[in-house]
Simulated scan of single mutants.
Amino acid sequence: MNAIPSSLLQVTIFFVAWVCLWLPLGVVSTIILQKNKAISVIWQPFKPITADQKIPLLASLYLIAPLILWGANKALGNSFANYGVIWDWSILRSNGIGFIIGTVGLALLFGVQTLLGWIKWQIAGKKIISVTLPILLLAVWISAIEELIFRGFVLTQLQQDYSIYLAAVIASVIFALLHLVWEQKETLPQLPGLWLMGMVLVLARYIDKGSLGLAWGLHSGLVWAIATIDTAELITYTGKVPQWVTGKYGKPLAGLMGMSFLLAIGAVLWLGLQ
């Protein structure tokens, strides 16, 4: 009788299968977009990726993720419920709470920096209106898939062989490092912040008694708020403090303030929602 592969091997096989099945779709989607837009969107790994390249690649990658995970469930004898997906009122309620915590928290983060004179706002009403809903839908979708994969499948499988603490560390490392696939220069300074974000999202699942609702909502709120601010170009940094304070390349997760913000979110979850 063959031995069941270790949890880390199972996770590795999952990601390899996901990438192998996605690559043809990724190539086709970029070729179609290239023909329609008459621009070069073919992705070249380890080179900076543009928005025109990233959108079709992400769309095809994340569309097949649930199908790949369904196949993994069949092979391993698991279900989506094992990963924290239970469709009832509670998951929607937790999702809403998490979304509010994420967006209000970021508002406080940027509010403090505004009062300190570290950032200036450039409000463009029409631009905000035009990007808010599309980014919200994208944030909810991307966050759902990432939570299902990283705080759902990966974390649950790793707990077969490791303690919750070590499983959380490993899952968060994987979560952070895989962001390097799309872009390296601006992602490298964010790796500690991305790892910490992963740990906070693990805590959110733990606080929510194994459900992904709270982590999903928190993740969605963070992605939506940060992406909206970036896309609408709502803020500029004054340069009164070094970038390591506010965030290298204007990325909050690459700075001391962003890291402190994540720790504060973790404290709120731990102290206020147990």
Results as ranks from 00 to 15, higher is better:
188 L>P: 10
80 F>I: 05
124 A>H: 15
203 L>I: 04
235 I>A: 00
153 F>R: 15
112 V>D: 06
86 I>F: 03
176 A>H: 12
174 I>H: 10
33 L>S: 08
76 L>G: 11
199 M>H: 01
267 A>V: 07
91 I>D: 05
60 S>C: 10
229 I>P: 10
60 S>D: 10
190 Q>W: 05
70 W>C: 03
141 W>L: 14
183 E>L: 12
126 K>E: 13
267 A>Q: 04
273 L>H: 15
117 G>W: 00
246 T>G: 08
266 G>S: 03
28 V>H: 02
24 P>L: 12
232 A>P: 13
50 T>H: 06
177 L>C: 08
102 G>R: 00
144 A>W: 09
37 K>T: 14
181 V>H: 06
251 K>R: 14
131 V>W: 12
139 A>K: 00
9 L>H: 15
254 A>I: 04
215 A>Y: 00
259 M>D: 02
144 A>Q: 01
97 I>S: 01
207 I>W: 03
240 K>D: 04
106 L>S: 02
132 T>H: 01
239 G>D: 05
172 S>A: 14
49 I>T: 14
91 I>R: 02
233 E>D: 14
158 L>V: 02
100 I>K: 06
11 V>H: 13
162 Y>C: 01
243 Q>W: 11
17 A>C: 08
196 L>G: 04
273 L>W: 15
65 A>E: 11
233 E>A: 14
37 K>E: 12
58 L>K: 12
46 F>G: 09
109 L>D: 08
66 P>I: 04
172 S>P: 14
42 I>Q: 14
197 M>N: 09
267 A>Y: 07
225 A>I: 00
117 G>R: 08
90 S>K: 11
100 I>G: 01
41 V>M: 05
252 P>F: 03
4 I>C: 10
22 W>P: 15
49 I>Y: 00
62 Y>Q: 10
92 L>R: 01
127 K>N: 13
82 N>L: 07
208 D>S: 12
91 I>H: 12
43 W>F: 15
12 T>R: 13
252 P>G: 09
249 Y>Q: 01
22 W>T: 15
32 I>E: 02
267 A>W: 13
228 T>E: 01
108 L>R: 00
98 G>D: 08
102 G>D: 00
155 L>Q: 08
255 G>C: 06
83 Y>W: 15
86 I>K: 10
156 T>C: 04
125 G>E: 08
166 L>W: 10
19 V>C: 11
223 V>H: 01
